[in-house]
Simulated scan of single mutants.
Amino acid sequence: MHPIHSPVVISPKFSVCAALVAVTLWSIAPLLAEFARAAAPLQLTALTLLAGALTTLPLSRRVSVKTCSLGWQLSVWLGTPLLIVGAVSSYFIGMRFAPAAEAALITYTWPVLFVLLSQWSRWGRLRWASVAGALIAFSGAALLLLPQALNGSFGGAVSGYGLALLAAFCWALYSWLGQAAPVSLTPLLPRLLLVACAITCAASLLLESSASLPRGEALLAGIALGLGPYGIAMVAWDKALRFGQASLVGSLAYGVPILAALLLVLAGVSVFDWRLPTAALLVAVGCLKASR
């Protein structure tokens, strides 16, 4: 007589709690990046990706990529790590040139870009709701930049804003690649992060003068970035999407820019201004509108 195994029942509250953990950890990423300003940006990226790879090991499973075409194999093992490097390093470098809150909000427009890219690749056209959502989200970012534009006082911040937007494009492309790939990228995430870490280490040795690890607060902040926003958050988000309702779980992510802006103000990194919460709300509403 064979034993009877009862199915595992996962409470809907589990997926919501897991999603909230991921959202909270992603929200503290700009604050941790500010604490790690003393570290060279590429070194910080490599440290973060290494810690993230070790933390996401529970997601690792055997996936056969050899059955895919050569183009998809190159996209998975080279394209994906390059997008991760581009997203994380552009974000860290951009925050060195531009104010943290503004750079973070520009980066958090990536869900809108992902929706637009996904629709265009699937149907060859864009829906009006998605375009309207993109306009709302980018109006939030424009609201923060408007005073500097009127006064002509951008200075070097333009480079920071451009790099933040580049990070948003990289995250959007990474998400689209994960959706379009013939195999799931989640079980490959630890290995992809290690490949990205190796690429960043090589770039750091070539482009940065210092080869030593960051010290003190910068070292702890870099490890925390890998363990939290790029580690535990990835695992929690994977569980939330697997066991929960995708529409409900996905909508929780749009609270990240609001919570991130609030944490930056409470920590004294950003000065409170009515434009900051308004812009964060516009970005969140725009992302939600586009996804619907």
Rank of each mutant, 00 (worst) to 15 (best):
I93Y: 01
G152M: 00
L185C: 07
L116V: 10
W171I: 05
A221R: 08
A224W: 09
W72D: 06
A104L: 03
L144Y: 06
A18K: 03
V131C: 04
W77E: 06
A181P: 09
P58S: 06
W72Q: 07
L163H: 05
W120K: 00
A198V: 13
A51S: 15
A167N: 11
C170S: 12
L31S: 11
A253V: 11
S118T: 05
L207P: 08
R96W: 00
T186L: 11
V8T: 11
T200G: 11
C201E: 08
S75H: 04
S153T: 11
A104R: 06
R215A: 13
I136E: 01
R62M: 11
L206F: 12
A103N: 06
L220E: 07
W237E: 07
A218C: 09
L225C: 04
A46I: 08
A36N: 06
I28A: 03
I258G: 00
A198E: 05
V85W: 10
A260V: 01
A279Q: 05
V249I: 15
L42S: 09
A40N: 12
L42R: 11
A279G: 10
L50W: 11
L206Q: 13
K66C: 13
Y91L: 14
F243M: 04
L206S: 12
P187H: 11
L20I: 10
